[in-house]
């Protein structure tokens, strides 16, 4: 019953720009913490904090922000996917 009658278009194909943005945000969020040479240095110091430690601390709120943007973009994708069937309306609701 919950299955939409007609198969909706693939949301990724329907929204290439949004999808690409999501992909890039994910990739960047992962890359800039995995690739240690970006931040594995003592200098420049921020106040008395070596760069390495400051970067790790700052990266967490940044991650939260990036993931928030990603979920907002995903909502758009899924909103399109739900179409008129309304079965996925709960995704955006609440």
């Amino acid at each position: 019953m919950t299955q939409p009658g007609s198969r909706p278009r693939n949301p990724v194909a329907a929204h290439p720009v949004t999808s690409a943005a999501i992909g890039i945000l994910f990739a960047a969020n992962i890359f800039f913490i995995v690739y240690v040479p970006v931040y594995g240095t003592v200098t420049p110091k921020i106040g008395s904090w070596p760069f390495f430690y400051f970067y790790l601390l700052i990266f967490m709120p940044v991650t939260s922000l990036v993931l928030w943007i990603v979920t907002q973009l995903q909502k758009r994708l899924n909103g399109a996917q739900a179409g008129p069937s309304g079965s996925a309306g709960s995704e955006g609701a609440e």
Partner: peptide
Amino acid sequence: SIGFFAVAYTILVFPIVL
């Protein structure tokens, strides 16, 4: 500093898990 891998990993885990 190697101990701070735990910090990097608990940042990394959320984009991966999402």
